[in-house]
Design a protein around this nucleic acid. Sequence first.
DNA 1: TATTGTTATACTCTATAACTATA
DNA 2: TATAGTTATAGAGTATAACAATA
Lengths: 175, 175
Amino acid sequence: MTDGLDPRELGTYFALMEAVGVLQHHVEQQLRAEGGISYVQFQLLARLADADGPLTMTQLADGVVYSRSGLTYQAGLLEKAGLITRGSFAQDERATLVSITDEGRALVGQVLPGHVQVTRRLLFDSLSDDDLQHLGAIMTRVRDHARAQPPRSAAPRKRRAAADAAADAAPDSPE
Amino acid sequence: MTDGLDPRELGTYFALMEAVGVLQHHVEQQLRAEGGISYVQFQLLARLADADGPLTMTQLADGVVYSRSGLTYQAGLLEKAGLITRGSFAQDERATLVSITDEGRALVGQVLPGHVQVTRRLLFDSLSDDDLQHLGAIMTRVRDHARAQPPRSAAPRKRRAAADAAADAAPDSPE
DNA sequence: TATTGTTATACTCTATAACTATA
DNA sequence: TATAGTTATAGAGTATAACAATA
């Protein structure tokens, strides 16, 4: 399974992905239960709460959502829930300026303590002070580097999707 | 935004989640393009390829999928695509034994090089040898600790979902 | 009774493509 | 022409609950 590949890297990678996967799942549960929002929505709100002023949709999306329509969808939900507002931007009439409302800020404040509690229990309780420092330094570097990477230049499709093959195997569609 | 909370922890946490989020997105793209599978499906196949023999559905799910039905769904796709087979288990007739097929192994082998390439580019290129070692040690510990954690004991729902509020705000339904 | 797995169903989310409007 | 954002739509994935069968 590791033909010619560095097994130390692979092991680290799998551990990282699974650890974060489990963490993510717990965090989603907490946010849904205590705030009625998803992690993506939390990220968007947190970002707006942290920013000095309003952000454009494009700025807001960076590193969180990977399609324009996906962000429009989430922004629509958040706006209808009264957590953000959308307005126009005098400097560039194409852009939409997104602001967090007082309700939005309140929700972040309401959800954050429990959120931190979960991350403590699942993440930081296993970390020494030194680990924390090192992990912070590492992941900040990785994030900044990864953000800058171009979206993978579509490799040739060598094989059909598992779902497609599944569709074939099922003799279903009306000829 | 960090009232009474440790900003160092919060910063590390956000960096971790965003870095892995971006990594995850690139990885999904690579797997879809070169293997026609999702990351969840890759995880399941990799786990089966790594195991000595077949695994039960429950063993297979651990840390990857969080509902029985979710796993049944994925297993259904993988089986119809010819990448796994499901059989019964003599020792416990309730269980289902999942085995990876030669095709499944071949697919993992086909996808893995490109997969490693992506993780190199997005993750390991930013890491020193020391970082790699440290990160591996940390995340293995975190994963094992997190896996053992009980699923959050449902906190009281204090607020309605953003989606629900959105549904209300839209005067749609037939009176 | 508890556990393993499946099925039916409803819902959330994401991405693609077509479109509008502004730079 | 390129960029910002929205809309329509289709598809993948997830979770809940009800179910069957075995321990």
